[in-house]
């Protein structure tokens, strides 16, 4: 055997692949046969979809509450928002329970309230927000005559449910449902998520609001209802929210640094660059600037909605790749880069 073959040196200038990583001088990273040192989350498609509709519900409630507080009384907007939030808050727990390993034990989530556990905070927020949203939607349904006209129950619902008070009470809880989806990811050992703890909640919240505004304008456009001013406000808010979202995504990428690599991997890049950066940010923003038209608004809404979903899939899939990469985790947990207790905040 020649010296070259034994030492695993380069041949013809190219590194010779070695069976034993340790004998390959090209490899600097130490690990155990490339076996991931941490385990990725098992989450299947239900979770990114929940993140999407949860953010949508939170954003819709936020917009309608702000409209209400500013005295902008548009019955069509309130109706669309109330029923949207109700449907998202019915679907969210179904998706989450579906994803459990033991779905029949879902009520154990209500066994304790742990402020240190993002998952526990999320469960309780969903419970509170979902019930308040249910009451608000019930009042809306009574007003719309869906509970029958001239019946005691419907009249009691309209009279007894304090619309404004409940909307304001539900606002912080709802916003927490939207942002906590991001914080829930960052409170793990997965390098890509954990590194971005500062912007994870904000970026999910901004993206959720963007999908909510798109959804509301889509509904109002398709049903040809709502005041002209509502649509104008929705478009304006949507443009501003997309800008905030874009800034937060750039900040996230800067913060993630080398651990953002999974977002640009072959598997995730269509979702992240194609779906998120182009589909949810650039294209809707371009469509919403300039002369407004119904067709353009509908296309922008659809793009932002699909893009928001792709953003969630990109983050979850990227996190899986990040967790499976020993090099990423070991460089992350090597000291300087890992979040340390003395970090500010």
């Amino acid at each position: 055997m020649s010296e070259e073959a034994v030492s695993g040196q380069q041949r013809n200038g190219r590194p010779k692949t070695s069976h034993h990583p340790e004998t390959d001088p090209e490899r600097k990273d130490k690990n155990y046969y490339g076996i991931p040192p941490i385990k990725h989350a098992h989450w299947t498609w239900q979770i990114p979809i929940y993140f999407w509709i949860g953010g949508l519900g939170a954003g819709a409630h936020m917009f309608s509450t702000v409209a209400q507080l500013l005295g902008h009384e548009d019955e069509a907007l309130q109706r669309a928002s109330r029923y949207t939030v109700l449907v998202t808050m019915i679907l969210s727990p179904i998706l989450l329970i579906w994803d459990l390993g033991r779905p029949e034990r879902f009520l154990n989530m209500m066994r304790v309230l742990k402020l240190r556990s993002p998952m526990s905070v999320q469960s309780w927020s969903l419970l509170v927000f979902g019930n308040l949203a249910g009451l608000l939607a019930a009042r809306q349904a009574a007003k719309d005559g869906l509970l029958g006209r001239d019946n005691v129950l419907a009249r009691l619902a309209v009279r007894l449910i304090p619309d404004r008070l409940l909307s304001v009470l539900a606002l912080p809880v709802g916003l927490n449902v939207g942002s906590n989806t991001g914080n829930l990811l960052s409170a793990t050992s997965v390098p890509m998520w954990a590194r971005n703890w500062l912007f994870m909640g904000p970026v999910f919240l901004a993206s959720g609001l963007s999908t909510a505004l798109s959804w509301l304008s889509l509904v109002l456009n398709l049903t040809r209802s709502g005041e002209a001013k509502t649509l104008r406000v929705l478009h304006r808010a949507e443009r501003a929210t997309i800008l905030v979202e874009a800034v937060l995504i750039v900040a996230s990428l800067a913060r993630m640094g080398r651990w953002s690599k999974p977002l640009f991997s072959r598997e995730v890049v269509p979702l992240f660059v194609g779906g998120t950066l182009i589909g949810a940010i650039l294209a809707p923003f371009a469509l919403l600037t300039g002369r407004e038209s119904r067709g353009k608004s509908i296309i922008a809404s659809l793009l932002a909605l699909v893009g928001g979903l792709m953003f969630r899939f990109a983050m979850i899939r990227g996190g899986r790749i990040s967790a499976d990469d020993p090099e990423a985790y070991f460089t992350f947990a090597s000291g300087e880069s890992a979040p340390q207790p003395e970090d500010a905040v």
């Binding site: 040192p37 916003l175 914080n183 409170a187 954990a194 703890w197 909640g201 919240l205 985790y329």
Partner: peptide
């Protein structure tokens, strides 16, 4: 040995994330 040099408590940053989210909201 497939062990991290400096493992960290992930929940350490949860409060910071909630504060950042409140600002963003």
């Amino acid at each position: 040995y497939n062990l991290p040099k400096h493992p960290f408590l992930p929940q350490e940053k949860f409060r910071g994330g909630v504060i950042a989210s409140a600002v963003a909201a």
